[in-house]
């Protein structure tokens, strides 16, 4: 609804929200990662899918991911308003009301799941529904405000897309898709904790329990290092497991060594360091790391498909 009755001032307000404001509710940057990783999952899957079905499946996964973003913004509007990183989102700025965001998110959730389930299979549709539920309910409504481990468990929501892409093609979940899931799942905590270290004040103001403001900087740095060590080991697994080639293996090892180097630099950073340069560098590198891993995996798969004719 675009018409809003303001009971307190007895004033009728008419929305000035533009389609772009609704699009912003979908968290387009997160959506681009969802699209990319789901696409990689589809290409790696050892089965055939009609290109048009694949395109629609990617779109449905993207919209489903976006819908969970809208539901997150609906519930977290109070937190978003006090954090500098999120204060310009459509609800805190008053462009879209919470009710509108909720209706928008729910509508897109239902349509994306039905579309994916009907046009591909219900394993993929079910996984998409579970992902939306996990992000909107388990992470946003439950974990985010109650435990500093929020990002560890909640990170699963962002890790499902390659598994959904794989399931859309094969109709099943396999070891390979679980490894793809694990790479993003294990990548999420060090990535977000690096961000939380230099945005500590933001999370404090919003009363969101992130590891640095609950367990302290020292413990967070150690956790970043430990998760990084497990991550780089799991990230190299697709090569020996045979669903990625040597180019991927070398990339995973070289970038993994760099990831560890950044994690060690963060670990060695002085407590109370105001500039937090190693944490900022690690946050930036973690984005490149994940994008590079999936890009090389994709390139290798496309090249071997082209060679196979």
């Amino acid at each position: 609804m675009a018409l809003v009755e303001n009971i307190e001032s007895n004033e009728t307000l008419v929305s000035e929200a533009l389609p772009g404001d609704y699009f912003a509710l979908l968290k387009p940057r997160v959506m681009s990662l969802v699209v990319f990783t789901a696409f990689v999952g589809m290409v790696l899957a050892p089965a055939h899918i009609h290109p048009m079905t694949a395109l629609i499946a990617i779109l449905a996964i993207a919209v489903g991911g976006g819908a969970s973003g809208a539901l997150n913004m609906w519930y977290d509007a109070d937190i978003d308003a006090v954090m500098t990183r999120t204060a310009k989102r459509p609800i805190p700025t008053g462009k879209v009301t919470r009710g509108e965001a909720l209706a928008f998110g729910l509508t897109l959730s239902v349509f994306s799941v039905l579309t994916l389930g009907t046009l591909t299979n219900w394993v993929a549709g079910g996984l998409l529904a579970f992902t939306i539920f996990f992000y909107a309910v388990v992470y946003t409504m439950w974990l985010k405000r109650s435990t500093p481990q929020n990002i560890v468990i909640g990170g699963a929501a962002g890790a499902f897309p390659p598994m959904i892409g794989w399931a859309a093609v094969t109709g099943s979940v396999s070891v390979e898709s679980v490894i793809l899931f694990l790479i993003i799942f294990l990548w999420t905590p060090p990535h977000f904790w690096a961000l939380a270290l230099f945005k500590l004040r933001d999370y404090d103001m919003a009363n969101v329990p992130m590891l640095p403001n609950v367990a302290g900087e020292r413990h967070t740095k150690l956790q970043i290092l430990l998760y990084s060590a497990v991550l780089v080991t799991v990230a190299a697994a697709p090569w020996p497991l045979g669903f990625a080639g040597p180019a991927y293996g070398v990339t995973a090892i070289v970038l993994g060594a760099n990831f560890l180097r950044h994690a060690v630099a963060v670990w060695r950073m002085e407590d109370g360091d105001a500039t937090m340069v190693p944490a900022k560098k690690m946050f930036g590198f973690s984005l490149v790391y994940l994008a590079a891993l999936f890009s090389v995996m994709l390139a290798e798969a496309l090249v071997s498909m082209a060679l196979a004719g």
Binding site: V14, S15, E16, L18
Partner: peptide
């Protein structure tokens, strides 16, 4: 409710 020019424009763009 008399809508302003900006509100009318926004409503039209949402409808499209």
């Amino acid at each position: 409710v008399e809508m302003t020019k900006a509100q009318k424009k926004a409503q039209r763009r949402r409808s499209v």
